[in-house]
Amino acid sequence: MSRSPGLLVGAGLTLFFALLALASLLWTPFDPTAFDVPARLQAPSAAHWFGTDHFGRDVLSNVMAGARTSISVAIVAVGLGMAIGVPFGLFAAAAGGAVDEWAMRASDIVFAFPALILAILLTAVLGPGALNAVIAIGVFNAPVFARLARGSALSLWRREFVLAARVAGKGRARISVEHILPNIGDLVIVQGTIQFSLGVLAEAGLSYVGLGAAPPTPSWGRMLAESQTIAAIAPWTAIFPGLAIVLCVLGLNLLGDGLRDAFDPKLRARR
């Protein structure tokens, strides 16, 4: 069965949000942070497509600028997780034995912690803000990549081309970088897309509880938190940011699944 519609939709949505975020750097219908007190709580109209919030800020402009925050926080966080996790996993696989065992126990410990609660705790330690949200999300991404890298690396270590490299006298570190890493790259990218979508959700969740990017930086999660009490009189303030999150995450998930199928035809049948 062909999965390409999912891939197409996913790529389309992802591209759309990426463009939206980029566009918001150059142009938004209104200044997302500018107040317009007389025009507050206006329903969607020709001037304000998504209406205005309690300060009279344009919701559409904030959704656009919020895409920028969500995407950049998620990208950096997932990048951080990859940067820590992949080398960690490669090292564990290359070292093997007791080192491997301990490395995996360490990642078990991180896995055993309730992620959201630890993220809240981390921001309590580091203070709220986009950077600390990045660290909190990144820390929980690291073991995911570590396990992925280790698992795939272990199977590669038994393959002929790696054995050939060992016979040729290459060191374990060099083999990891020259032979293993290029071969697990596609898997890391696929997992990265999935983690990226989880990162967008996590950023929204942290911002919702007030631990994400500080105002006035627009953020989808904080828009939802602020609109909660006025949702009944101004539903548009809650609906549009929420839809933005759903569509963005949906796009990334579809893209991730599609990429996995494309990279690994064997899996196509199963996923």
Binding site: S197, L201, G205, Y208, L224, I245, V249, L254
Partner: peptide, 10 residues
């Protein structure tokens, strides 16, 4: 897919 994408607080 939609179930996975909806933020739970929303």
């Amino acid at each position: 897919q939609i179930g996975l994408a909806v933020p739970n607080f929303w």
